[in-house]
Design a protein around this nucleic acid. Structure first.
Lengths: 219, 219
DNA sequence: GTCTATAGATCGATAGAC
DNA sequence: GTCTATCGATCTATAGAC
């Protein structure tokens, strides 16, 4: 419980002198949160290699030595940050109330909710960029992203498509992936890669066409 | 013609002493190609910030000073490399002979061709990763990518869907984007982000479902 | 035209004062 | 527990020999 050194194993031999601890040590979690906040600002914008620990410390408002007292090294800080973001900050799972009503409305709500979540939070886009950009050098972080964000979304939509009596898709899982991939990649192109300045298109056309293809309904 | 300093403007005042040039100066283009080859290996793997000019020079088999004699700085080298790759190396445009025959066969050929191009060249995946990862810091390179690779593919498939009498999609452009985005993002997840180890799926299921959705045909 | 050698800045990480 | 000061390595970029 003491000395919240991340990157378990290889801990300093501070062993069992936990007795006689001084004061309630709730300040630590504040400092950790402060550091992670600074780390997020820097890593999201400049990437792993482009971020210096000096700037992280500066943005966090602490000294560099303090950063190193909570995180073993730069890589451990980066991993801790990304895992936290993937587990708590950025989610793509849709609420229960979204999947009620006519299939057409449900699919449109899901699509709009997904796009809105990304649009309303600028960091979301940057986080996706970071994950893809660093996936070659941090495969485990990419897998964390898949496990916590991509997988639940696919499974949830697949389950809905499977159990929706109105629509008869031969392969619900493939259909779910197509639905989500189209939307995510659409945002990736239009917003993250500035395609909206070159080959613009309204998101609603993508949504409407997806719904039309899945339901065979004109609208 | 002499002194192929990239990043025009700000040229060294070597002006017009082009007379009395020594020997046929075809060696320069070789050196440039050599440097770009080394730069590709390094930048594709380590990203922009993660790549050092020392390593570029080493991999290219020349001295660092030679690199700087052909490219003004690290950024100019990176931009020159990416523009060259986007214009010549990596293409996603489909051959004319792909779009002949039954729509179902055409769409399947296009999809297979796209996936095969990415699968057969490991650098393609890394290049996509690099473009997305650096798009925040190099917006113009992202636009080059869109202009040279994404835009032609979308336009080509849109044109085919528009003029194909057998299939009646209400929005050919949106349909074309959905078709391509599904495939590209599928590869991005499965291969670049290791989703195939967590939520595997055969590419043919994606392809078949896309064709089914567009044609309304069971297969 | 290409090299070696090096300048000057910044990097990750730590020692020691308080 | 947090700071300042600093180390050694590495970075971009260049000067000068040949």
């Amino acid at each position: 419980m003491r000395k919240a050194r991340i990157k378990a194993g290889n801990l300093k031999r501070k062993v069992d002198i936990t007795l006689k601890a001084n004061a309630p040590r709730e300040v630590n979690t504040e400092k950790v949160a402060q550091i992670l906040q600074g780390a997020m600002q820097e890593f999201l914008v400049h990437g792993y290699a482009g971020t210096s620990m000096d700037r992280v410390a500066g943005t966090a408002g602490v000294s560099k030595a303090t950063v190193y007292s909570y995180f073993e090294d730069k890589e451990a800080l980066f991993v801790a940050l990304v895992e936290r973001l993937a587990q708590t900050e950025f989610q793509m799972i849709f609420d229960d109330k979204l999947i009620q009503g006519k299939p057409e409305d449900v699919l449109r709500r899901i699509a709009r909710s997904l796009l809105n979540e990304i649009f309303s939070n600028p960091d979301y886009l940057t986080f996706m960029r970071l994950m893809i950009g660093e996936s070659g050098r941090f495969p485990n972080l990419a897998k964390t992203f898949i496990n916590n964000i991509t997988k639940p979304a696919i499974e949830r939509l697949t389950h809905y498509l499977e159990n929706c009596p109105e629509l008869k898709v031969p392969d619900p899982e493939a259909s779910a992936r197509i639905f989500l991939s189209s939307l995510v990649h659409h945002i990736q192109l239009q917003e993250a890669m500035y395609a909206k300045e070159i080959i613009p298109i309204e998101s609603d056309r993508i949504i409407n066409t997806l719904i039309y293809l899945l339901l065979g309904k004109k609208e």
